[in-house]
Computed example of a mutant assay.
Amino acid sequence: MSDGEAKLINLAFRVGSVAEAEALVESTGGWSKRAMHDIDGEQFLEARFGGISINFFETALYDGKAEPARAGFLHASFAVPSLAAILENPDWSARLVWGPSTIRGGFGHRRIAFFEPLPGCRIELMEEIDD
């Protein structure tokens, strides 16, 4: 991936309760709630703080059954023009940890995959799919 091909879309955080995060967002200055979304039955909150989009999840798509659900930073999400081109790159494909998969919600229709280029550093790459 070269500079200029990826665009930061949002940061994602795990919280103990999306409902509690929603209440805090709605009652704290500087925050604005954009929407509640659903991916395969799991709700998440899309919010903004200043010009930054931040999503709050209780469960990440890539969570394993044995992985403890600790609150904190999950991943940064970037839009790319072609997820297939990224997956063809052996440097990226060797670091694939989940996906690719197609998701749909109020945010649109996307093909996504998660990568771990360094231990503990997860990145979501997404390609918008036109309906």
Rank of each mutant, 00 (worst) to 15 (best):
I52C: 13
V18C: 12
R104T: 12
S82V: 10
T102V: 12
N10A: 08
E42Y: 04
N55C: 15
T28E: 04
F73P: 06
G120S: 14
P90H: 13
A94E: 13
A71D: 08
F114G: 00
I103E: 00
V80Y: 01
E26T: 10
N10F: 05
G16Q: 11
S32K: 12
E116Y: 08
P68S: 04
A12N: 07
S101W: 06
A69D: 04
G99S: 12
H75M: 04
L11I: 03
G108I: 03
G51F: 02
K7V: 12
L74A: 04
A113W: 01
R70C: 08
R95V: 03
D130W: 13
L83Y: 01
E127Q: 05
S27Y: 06
I112T: 07
I9P: 00
I112A: 03
K65S: 14
E5A: 06
L61A: 10
A47W: 01
D40V: 15
P100G: 03
V18T: 09
I86P: 00
G120K: 14
F56Q: 00
I123T: 04
A66Q: 12
G120Y: 15
D3W: 11
L125D: 00
R48L: 07
A23G: 10
K33P: 12
I123L: 14
W98I: 01
G50R: 02
S53T: 13
L83M: 05
S53K: 10
T28Q: 06
D91G: 15
N89Y: 08
M126D: 01
E116C: 09
R14P: 03
E22H: 15
L8Y: 05
F13N: 03
D130N: 13
A85E: 11
S32F: 08
L83F: 02
W92K: 07
E127T: 07
G72I: 12
G29Y: 06
L11A: 05
G72E: 09
